[in-house]
């Protein structure tokens, strides 16, 4: 818990709406502050990036990062809201967390979210797909 409080004390200015549950914290981050928060979580707190989830709601797209603090078993989940559904773009965290490469590529593939600053942003699963599978998880909702 001490870690969590310290996190809020130091990063409180950068985060928005917060939901706290036992061992889980979900909080909103503006896309411009994302790299700073991730930098803090990964390099200073030594969290591990478990994965990131992209979700589409009626109004916007959101990307939810899941950072696991393995020493305490807590989950820190920064949420980035993207309002521009036509051309979604947020900064990439791959330069900070090497392991995010595939995670971001997958989101690019399935949701078409562009990650600015990603070193190798090509489609992950549907690369060279014979039927040209395009953003399958979004297509459904537009329909």
């Amino acid at each position: 818990m001490a870690k969590m409080d310290q996190f809020f004390a130091e990063m409180g200015g950068l985060i928005g709406k917060t939901i706290r549950k036992p061992k889980r914290i979900y909080f909103d981050v503006d896309k411009n502050n994302l790299t700073q928060v991730v930098e803090y979580l990964f390099n200073r707190m030594h969290c591990r990036l478990s994965t990131a989830t992209a979700t589409e709601t009626y109004h916007n797209l959101e990307v939810l990062y899941h950072f696991s603090h393995d020493a305490s078993g807590d989950y820190y989940c920064p949420r980035v809201l993207i309002t521009d559904k036509q051309k979604p773009a947020i900064p990439s965290i791959t330069p900070i967390v090497r392991g995010a490469e595939w995670i971001e590529r997958e989101m690019f593939d399935f949701w078409g979210i562009e990650f600015i600053g990603h070193p190798n942003l090509i489609r992950l699963l549907a690369r060279d797909h014979p039927q040209g599978l395009d953003k399958p998880l979004r297509f459904r909702r537009d329909k």
Binding site: L49, S50, A71, R98
Partner: peptide
């Protein structure tokens, strides 16, 4: 850096195991 998990990480000296954490 690659956020490896499981035996792969544990063989490299990263002590993570959800069962304990």
């Amino acid at each position: 850096n690659f956020c490896a998990v499981g035996p792969t990480a544990r063989a490299s000296g990263v002590k993570i195991d959800v069962r304990k954490d």
